[in-house]
Simulated scan of single mutants.
Amino acid sequence: MQYMLLIHVDESAFAKMTPEMQGVMSEPYMAYNAALAKAGAMVAGERLQPSHVSTTVKIRGGKTEVLDGPFATTKEQLGGFYLIEAPDLDAALSWAARCPAATHGVVEVRPIWTTR
């Protein structure tokens, strides 16, 4: 079964880091990526650009509204994702707990809706 691991982090903390600090923070993610790949669990994963460059689209009263930036104002923003294969929710939760983001943000685990 496939699960989406949605990584929510405080973008402002990362933006305040020096390039050296950002590099050190990237190392655990590279190791996590390698572990997922070695286990055959990695389907896809990407880091997202900051939320201030996002665009939000909604339709209200039949009219399309396009807003610069995220719709919700929260401390944590969606910073990236992993799409993984796991035999069950417990295994997906185990992978989420190993994700470096779990130590400084939140990892939301959601099963992919299947039509099969």
Rank of each mutant, 00 (worst) to 15 (best):
T73E: 15
V24T: 13
N33K: 09
W113P: 00
S54N: 12
R60C: 12
Q77G: 01
V53C: 11
G80A: 06
A86S: 03
T64C: 11
I112F: 13
Q49K: 14
K16F: 06
V66G: 08
K16W: 02
A97N: 05
Q49R: 15
V9I: 14
G23S: 10
A91H: 05
K16N: 14
E11H: 09
I112M: 14
V53R: 07
R98Q: 15
I59Y: 03
S94E: 11
T64L: 14
E108Q: 11
V107D: 01
P100G: 06
G105Y: 05
I7Y: 02
Y82C: 01
A31N: 11
L83W: 03
E76V: 06
A96W: 02
Q77R: 13
V9C: 08
Y32T: 01
K16A: 15
S12A: 13
R116K: 10
V43T: 06
Y29A: 03
F81D: 03
T103A: 14
T55D: 06
P70A: 14
W113K: 10
L48G: 05
G23R: 08
S12V: 04
I112V: 15
K75S: 09
E11K: 02
A41N: 08
T103E: 12
H52V: 13
T55V: 14
M1W: 01
V24N: 12
R116C: 03
P28T: 04
G69A: 09
G23A: 11
F71G: 10
A91M: 08
I59S: 10
P50N: 07
G62Q: 05
H104N: 09
A15S: 13
V106N: 11
D90E: 14
G40T: 07
M30L: 15
P28A: 07
V107S: 01
Q2A: 03
T56Y: 07
A101C: 03
A31Q: 14
E11R: 04
T56F: 08
A96D: 05
